[in-house]
C-alpha cells in the first residue's frame, strides 16, 4: 500500500476519521463462543436485543473475514492454542472483546485446566464483566469499542504497532497461591487474610 511507506512522516487526519467511521460501523464479529457466554452472545444477536442496530450483526465463522473477535466463555488449556491460531489468522485491523468473567480472568474456574484470563496470551481491547454478561452489557462493549476505534484508529494501523495504551501488559498472576491450598471459604480466617502486594500474607 502506498500509504504504508509514508506512515512515519505524514499525518492523514481527515482520512483517518473517515476510515474509523467506516470501520466502527461495520464490525464483523468472529464469535469464539466456548461456553455459557456463547448463548448470551446468541441472545444478543437474536430478536430482542438485536446487535444489528450497531452494525455488528454479520457474524462470520471464518477468521479471515472478521475484524472483531468476541471470546465468549472460558478458554481451557487445550483450547488456547486454537484461540491463538485463530487470532493470528484474522487480518488487520482487528480487535478483541473478552466477554465474561471466565475469559477475562478465569472466573470461578480457578482450576488446573482453565487459562486465567486470555489477556495473558493474546491482546484484548474491551473486557466485559459478568457471569455471563447480559446482552445489554455486550452491546455496551461494542459501543465502547466503537468509541475506541474512532478515538485511536489510524488508516495505516499505526496504533497496532505500539504496545498498548498503558505502559505494560498484565503481569503474570500477582500471587500464585500454593498448589495444595484449598479455596478460601468465607470465614476461614487463617487463609482468608488479604495478601500484600509483594505476596506476603
Amino acid at each position: 500500500m502506498a500509504l504504508g511507506g509514508l506512515s512515519e512522516s505524514v499525518l492523514v487526519t481527515q482520512l483517518d476519521k473517515l476510515a474509523n467511521w467506516v470501520r466502527k460501523n461495520s464490525l464483523w464479529p468472529m464469535p469464539f463462543a466456548t461456553a455459557c457466554c456463547g448463548i448470551e452472545l446468541m441472545a444478543t444477536g437474536a430478536s430482542r436485543h438485536d446487535i444489528a442496530r450497531f452494525g455488528a450483526e454479520a457474524m462470520r465463522f471464518s477468521p479471515r473475514q472478521c475484524d472483531l473477535m468476541i471470546v465468549a466463555g472460558r478458554v481451557a488449556m487445550k483450547m488456547l492454542p486454537v484461540l491463538q491460531r485463530i487470532w493470528l489468522q484474522m487480518p488487520e485491523p482487528k480487535w478483541c472483546i473478552s466477554m465474561g468473567a471466565c475469559a477475562s480472568s478465569g472466573g470461578v474456574f480457578d482450576t488446573y485446566a482453565v487459562v486465567q484470563g486470555i489477556d495473558r496470551f493474546i491482546p484484548v481491547d474491551v473486557y466485559v464483566p459478568g457471569c455471563p454478561p447480559r446482552p445489554e452489557q455486550l452491546l455496551q462493549a461494542v459501543i465502547d469499542l466503537q468509541a475506541k476505534i474512532q478515538r485511536t484508529g489510524t488508516i495505516t494501523g499505526k496504533e497496532f504497532q505500539q504496545q498498548r495504551l498503558w505502559p505494560h501488559p498484565p503481569k503474570p498472576l500477582a500471587v500464585e497461591l500454593p498448589p495444595a491450598e484449598k479455596i478460601v471459604a468465607p470465614g476461614d480466617f487463617a487463609s482468608a487474610t488479604r495478601l500484600q502486594p509483594d505476596g506476603r500474607p
Binding site: A35, A76, M79, A113
Partner: peptide, 26 residues
Amino acid sequence: IGYLHSGFEKLGEHLDYNQYVTIVDR
C-alpha cells in the same frame, strides 16, 4: 473432546454443598 474441560469435578471437592450450586449451574 476436552476443549472445554474446566475441572468441575475437582472444584466440587473444594466447595461446600451450597457453594457448588454456582458451578453446577454452568
